[in-house]
Amino acid sequence: MTCTEIRRYLSDYLEGTLAPEQAQQVERHLQTCITCAQECRALEWVPLLLGQWSPPVPSEQIWAGIEARLRAGSAWQVAPTERTSRLPWRVFTRWLPAATLAAVAVSALIALFVWRAQPTYLPLNGSYSSYWQAHRQWARSGGTSELYPYVEAQ
């Protein structure tokens, strides 16, 4: 085959579409013809060069469109409905134990404070009927603390 014929087959040779006999002819020719070998090498470079193609990406424009469609369009209503409703529930369940603990602790502190602030009084003779009688006597006398007939519980 002549160089012109060989060059017609080079791309097909590189893509592997030639019949075995034709491919062998091309190979033999390339071993002896520098010009055709260079042409073959140039063709081999094509995919390697294309692999470097990287167009500028309008990232923000693309994302803005996605976000707008997800927020306003049907996409949010199809699948993410579950997601959007799940978010507050997840926050709630995540903080529930901590919130319960905090509520119990605050209640305990308030109870302790009230208990400490108000002294407990017991009747002197240990009888509640006499307690109320003594209390009424004390109230009639004007309610002065010196006459209060009970002792503070220790």
Partner: peptide, 22 residues
């Protein structure tokens, strides 16, 4: 494969300066 071969030839012509450099 045939389309790839034809496209490779066309690309080779358009990429001539780069390929020569390579």
């Amino acid at each position: 494969k045939s389309r790839l071969a034809r496209a490779r030839e066309a690309l080779r012509r358009h990429l001539e300066p780069l390929l020569n450099k390579g």
